[in-house]
Design a protein around this nucleic acid. Structure first.
Lengths: 201, 201, 201, 201
DNA sequence: ACCTAAGCGAGACGGTACGTCACGTCTTGTC
DNA sequence: GACAAGACGTGACGTACCGTCTCGCTTAGGT
């Protein structure tokens, strides 16, 4: 059969959801995001169909499109709900800070989060909204990592006149490229070491 | 109408192509790849439809599917034909070599090649064939840039005991990340300088 | 956009109507019927949407459905308000009376009233309420025209033993058929002359 | 259940119809018209949904729309297939000819054919194609009946200088009006008699 | 010189999903 | 308690492509 599993026993199976007046019903939102997450888990992100989400969530397509006008928007919403956070540590050593950051992110990405993030990058090529959100997200990450670099500058580990985002961007670029080439399992120690060293020619 | 331009004056406009007997007509292959390339240039890879390719190439859908059984297969065939090459120079300075490479690649990517490449990355998330080919391509590029690093090592610019692909990967990671975030126009001088410097702690 | 004109300058543009307590607000009724009439004038009855009426009347859909539970009910309410009247003259000649009646009706129908009436006939095929009202209306018209025939009988123009509705029905049948076939502009003189003549075999 | 009856035992249940090349498959046409006719018989013409027809005929919606681009077109096609023909007799008396014609048509219209025809008239108010076809059909009918009148003129029953379509139109107008007002069962003898008489004032 | 077999264009076919629209019901908060 | 606002589940709409198919034509190579 190719039909939906009809989801007969979803969490808290309240028969039917109704409108709660002229405002968004949070139950509906939950049901839709749950449905989308389930489908993604079952068939992968490429198999996410708006129609199937609506059917599984027992929601109208109009409701779905009202709040998430595109596949990408829905994707982002599901991702935001489960977005794992990397903690940016302060070990006193830039190398250690970078390494922890990179290893944390790699670990997160090695699960289904990586699939998610790759799919979002892919989607951003065709959906401008997703592209913008992704850019924001990327900028945010960059800034957070740049803060780590700044601390290192304050400790005197690396030159103070360089832009802290430069090193941060190289770290993140490395990781994106690894993710997109399915090479997350390869070693990064040397790369991080190189990026954590001071450059005095 | 926003539909196909019907391509009234394509290269070698022989009114209609017919069978040339019990074997593949090379004109047909050319026409199909041309059509696909044109469509990708116009609407991006996401806008590539088998049906539109057949129409524009004045080919039957069966013919199309006979040789390129999937969107991914067609995509790769088009890409193989036009794969742009960066020349890896030897200026005697790693910084200069890196900078030239990066600027060349950025220039290439700023045209339609960038759209193409981003789309291939996106497609590779759902089509394993494309993913594999992309990985090969990436490895090849990495090796070529690593050769540049090796020359620098031989000149004594940078330590000889480091793996030359490490620096190469950081350069390429930076560029991928810039490409995918539509930030190709931002400065990379500092980044390249950092990656070209010797690291002596 | 082809959507509603939002009606920024409707009659009695009192910014917002509110409840006038625990009873029906007559302004609301007026606003709704006005809105419906306007929409019918613009797009025809086929284009009448409950949703659009509510929006244009700045009324809630619930309010609308409370009083006019169906499209047909609303339709009839609008029609009742604007029902155009033909005057049945008494010129002393059946031919003249018929001709005046027919020409008056044709003139009325050539404007938007014709569209309205055709639409009511169409609607009556699927809405029994409308069908019944239409039948009543038709009977009423028939009777009025039959009175004209009776006067002619009393003048001795035509035989007295015939049912006056017979001729009346033929006149009206002619006109309905002309209306429904969009042939209102064709000549009716000969037909009327035939129907006004005495029949002596 | 609100779902279709899935039609498990249709006439000649050939599992699946396929394309028969680049031209219309008559089996498909038959299946679709059968499905439409069945649905109309079940739920009435107002209950005819393109989607349900496609489902029941096991046809794609695209196929349906390819050949019958609107509900009205499909309606007409179904009607044409079953169009009952009135025979225009030649009894030697205009009264008899008219009466036979009228009674035949009334009998035909009293079954589901009448519902059909009324629905087509209704549909013609919103679908210009249907309107045109209806006008043609009406003109054809008018001409056929006018021929009856012409024969009567040749016999000398009625004046020769009058346009034969005039009487014909009055007959048909009467019948249309009766049909649309659900008054087919009322007497028409007097009306026919009046229309069959010679008018000499 | 004929025959066969494949390539080829065209496009119809059964499907799936799309994104939009209107339906009629509902709940909220305001007056 | 009437009201506007509008969210909700439902379901049909008409469109766009999918990948498969059958047709009738064209041509090369074997006979």
């Amino acid at each position: 059969m190719t039909t939906e599993t009809e989801d007969p026993d979803h969490k808290e199976n309240k028969k039917t959801r109704h409108s709660i007046g002229a405002k968004k019903n949070p139950d509906t939102e939950t049901a839709i995001l749950d449905a989308a997450a389930d489908i993604i888990a079952e068939k992968g992100i490429g198999g996410l169909r708006m129609e199937a989400v609506a059917r599984k969530a027992k929601a109208g397509k109009a409701t779905l499109y009202r709040w998430w006008p595109s596949r990408g928007a829905l994707l982002l919403a599901v991702y935001q709900r489960k977005k794992p956070s990397v903690c940016y540590r302060d070990t006193g050593s830039l190398y250690e800070d970078f390494l922890h950051f990179a290893k944390d992110l790699i670990e997160i990405w090695q699960g289904e989060n990586g699939l998610f993030f790759k799919a979002i990058i892919a989607e951003s090529q065709s959906d401008p909204d997703v592209a913008e959100k992704l850019k924001d997200y990327h900028a945010e990450r960059l800034e957070a990592l740049a803060a780590v670099v700044t601390r290192s500058q304050q400790r005197g580990e690396i030159p103070q006149n360089e832009d802290p985002t430069t090193r941060a961007e190289l770290v993140i670029g490395l990781l994106w490229q690894r993710l997109l080439n399915n090479r997350l399992d390869e070693s990064i120690d040397e790369h991080i070491k190189m990026l954590a060293n001071s450059d005095e020619t």
